[in-house]
Amino acid sequence: MTDEPASAQRLAEQVRDGLWAGDRASQALGMQVTEIGPGRAVLTMRVREDMLNGHGMCHGGLIATLADSAFAFACNAGNELTVASGFAIDFLAPGQLGDLLEARCTEVSRAGRTGVYDATVHNQRGECLAVFRGRSYAMRGKPAVASAGR
């Protein structure tokens, strides 16, 4: 008898490592994957000066990118190639220079080829800056990371 939760966790970690190796966008923005598991991921990003918009706040597109990256890691954690089919985001408060933003994404539903994932983005003070809902589409029979176990 296999230890399915531990096996699913190991797979999620392998997928994280494989996806991260090629994720130049998230790396360039200074993101880090701080947690990964089946259907869930947590990523962080420090707001730098080059991330500020004309109002001196973190550009909303970069907050959305952080949430989208957490979504990508969460929905691919089972090693089935999965892409976004769309997302919506609501901004609740601005990010400021120096803030450490955390996007926490969890699977709400996965049925057939489609899934729904929710993420929240908080700053280091626990203030919620954004809520995100992503919709995913899985490519059946294709691994997210070829070297990860199935």
Rank of each mutant, 00 (worst) to 15 (best):
107 E>T: 14
140 R>V: 13
81 L>P: 08
137 Y>M: 14
64 A>S: 12
34 T>N: 01
33 V>H: 14
97 L>R: 11
125 R>K: 13
75 C>G: 02
137 Y>C: 10
103 A>G: 09
53 N>W: 03
61 G>L: 12
88 A>C: 10
117 Y>P: 11
105 C>E: 01
96 Q>N: 12
118 D>K: 04
66 L>D: 08
40 R>I: 08
19 L>W: 02
101 L>F: 12
25 A>R: 02
147 S>N: 09
38 P>I: 04
39 G>I: 15
103 A>M: 09
58 C>K: 05
145 V>K: 10
48 R>W: 07
111 A>F: 11
31 M>V: 10
113 R>L: 13
85 S>Y: 08
22 G>H: 15
30 G>Y: 06
134 G>N: 02
16 R>D: 00
74 A>I: 05
69 S>L: 06
30 G>W: 04
39 G>A: 11
5 P>M: 01
108 V>P: 09
18 G>L: 06
19 L>N: 00
59 H>C: 01
104 R>D: 01
45 M>E: 01
65 T>N: 05
82 T>I: 08
38 P>M: 05
55 H>F: 14
30 G>Q: 09
45 M>I: 02
125 R>N: 15
105 C>I: 08
77 A>G: 07
84 A>V: 14
1 M>T: 05
132 F>V: 02
109 S>E: 14
135 R>G: 13
71 F>P: 03
39 G>V: 11
